[in-house]
């Protein structure tokens, strides 16, 4: 069962490379981490050898609340985004089959499922990479329609990538600045004559970018090239870059891939802190322990269909989910 997103386009080759199978606490999440790009990825040796690579601590007290980006702010608990009977076909392959779920403002929603279940495809539909064959996505009550990717980002949906896709030859600070720039409008003329708009936007942009880097504990590495950062810092930088666009909804695509248990625990803490600062989080994750520990609700996909939805406790006991993860044939089991 290969991921149907793979052969169709080079847009987002984020399908898991690991083998399908159980994804328990010590599951294959680690091995499925970004094996395809290789470009932005430091070798394992670097993480051990480089003295600059102590585990980065975040500074949860830094205020990184989303800035006002001109979209209506809904109150806590209201529906932020609704995926409405989305079907996506690639030729004969049905990647998503009438998938419906919603995300409430202020919650952490987990999106789980075996490899090839359509989790990343679902992300891609929500961020405008793919147009659904039928059905649609409603954001703040309005359909996203055929909006372009950057327009959706400007509306407040930001994401990270399963395979790290930083701007490798730009510094950490510049990576975050690109995210902040999403809501800026400085053009050639403003830049050429250093008009007040340019100076104001640059000033605010740098301040916010530095806050985000400080929050992530990366402020000491602002001038490092993204490609030279250790693996964990690259993952954190991706989150910082996504946060820089001041999203209403932050989509994290397997942020813990390749992390050891200690790093995963820190990441759980980080995701909670991000939520407490006023963001809504959608989390794709293989690691069950992490998902169960941090999410408020969970949606389970299998073969492009939603097979379950509920609180972590409900999902844990759901026979369909257990069957999907352990590969038990339901007929045999019954």
């Amino acid at each position: 069962m290969s991921d149907p997103t793979q052969p169709t386009t080079g847009d987002d080759p984020t399908a898991p490379a690991g083998t399908p199978g159980p994804a328990g606490p010590a599951g294959p999440a680690g091995t499925s981490a970004g094996t395809s790009s290789g470009r932005a990825e430091p070798t394992g040796g670097r993480t051990l050898a480089d003295p600059a690579d102590e585990v980065t601590e975040i500074n949860p007290d830094v205020d990184i609340a989303p800035e006002d980006i001109g979209v209506p702010v809904v109150s806590e608990g209201e529906r932020l985004l609704e995926v409405d009977e989305v079907t996506l076909r690639f030729g004969g392959v049905v990647a998503l089959n009438e998938v419906s779920f919603h995300i409430n403002k202020g919650e952490i929603l987990g999106l789980i499922g075996p490899n090839g279940a359509g989790k990343t495809t679902c992300f891609n539909v929500m961020t405008g990479v793919y147009q659904p064959t039928s059905g649609g996505v409603r954001y703040l009550g309005k359909p996203l329609g055929k909006r372009k990717k950057y327009q959706i980002t400007k509306l407040g949906i930001a994401r990270t990538f399963q395979n790290i896709r930083l701007f490798a030859n730009m510094t950490a600070l510049e990576n975050v600045l690109v995210g902040v720039d999403a809501h800026h409008s400085t053009g050639v003329v403003s830049a050429m004559f250093r008009l007040p708009k340019h100076r104001r936007e640059e000033g605010q942009g740098y301040a916010r970018a530095l806050e985000l880097l400080t929050f992530m504990g990366l402020d000491g590495k602002a001038d490092e090239l993204a490609r030279n950062l250790p693996y964990g810092d690259q993952r954190r930088l991706e989150i910082a870059r996504a946060l820089a666009t001041s999203p209403q909804l932050l989509c994290l695509d397997e942020p813990a891939a390749g992390f050891n248990p200690a790093e995963k625990a820190k990441l759980m803490e980080l995701i909670r802190t991000i939520r407490d600062q006023g963001y809504t989080v959608l989390l794709i994750e293989h690691d069950m322990k992490l998902v169960m520990g941090v999410t408020d609700r969970i949606v389970v996909l299998e073969f492009g269909r939603k097979i379950a939805e509920g609180s972590p406790a409900e999902i844990r006991d759901n026979p369909a989910v257990i069957a999907a993860y352990l590969g038990v044939d339901e007929e045999d089991a019954s």
């Binding site: 950057y150 400007k154 490798a168 030859n169 995210g179 400085t186």
Partner: peptide, 28 residues
């Protein structure tokens, strides 16, 4: 002047990874 502004960063981001740039709000 232009390179050291939002415009220059947008160019570089596009060069590095066009899809990621687009998803970070750059009208590539």
């Amino acid at each position: 002047l232009v390179k050291s502004s939002r415009v220059g960063r947008a160019w570089e981001a596009t060069r590095e990874d066009e899809d990621a740039a687009e998803l970070m709000g750059v009208p590539t």
